[in-house]
Amino acid sequence: MAAASLEDQENRKAWGFVTPALLWTICFFVIPFIVMTAISLATRTGREIVMVWNFDNYITFFEKAHLLKGLFVSLEITFTVTIISILLAYPLAWIIAERVPQKWQRMALILAVLPFWTSYVVRSYSWLLVLAKNGVINNTLIWIGVIAEPLEMASTRSATIIGFVHFFVMLLTLTIYANLVQMPPNYRRAAADLGANGFQVFWHIVLPLTLPGIMVGAFLTFVLCIGDYITPQILGGNNELALPQIIMLQLGRRADFPMAATLSIVLMGAVTLAYIACARWLKMERT
């Protein structure tokens, strides 16, 4: 009896600690998400949102070419960025972990992610300074005399990709480095003793062992990249719209809340699929 009441008391205390955070997340995350899902099943008449509870918005999404194209543009950009970032970051992390003297490694890492701490909006703007028609690259090339006319680099998909890659190379260098230094050096020594050459050690030992870490970084890249509005808006211009840009367009100019909600759910669907793919792959890898 006494024990039970003591347990009750303990439990009540525990709930007291957890409830505020839970309530906050439920009120300002779970419920808003449900509201948004409901609104995606509504329609807009004038400025009013009318609940009709049908999937017309989703059907419209698959019928209207410019909307569907947004998803594909976003997916293409995201995959390109993820792959290029991994290919660039892996050697960098490797060199920092292997070639840079131990006592300088921390410094090298801090330096590698320093521009991370510029404001997100400002970072895209900085790339605009570099890539614009009268920007650093064009002006320098014209000054040296390599080109006569400025190259069109801003307001292209390449500019968006460069801006993204810059950000994610920093992020992935950190995660891959963390993986590389966690690996016991004995594994590689053993492989080398058994006659593997440098490339074989890398391909059969190092790469498989760091792959899970790469996948986690790749997933993070995917989520952050596909949901970003700033970088494609500042660097990509309006020639070719990514999904977040289209969502913002629905909100702003067209004030079409239901469509914006629908597109957001589609965006989330893409992220969820990527998550499932990653999780499955990681599980397969482990067994």
Partner: peptide, 26 residues
């Protein structure tokens, strides 16, 4: 409970913002 608390981490900021905007408007 842990899952609920961590969940917002896995969702794009844009979607969190839109959800809150819809709810505040409502």
């Amino acid at each position: 409970q842990r899952g609920i608390l961590i969940a917002p981490m896995t969702v794009s900021y844009l979607i969190i913002a839109l959800g809150l905007l819809s709810t505040f408007n409502w």
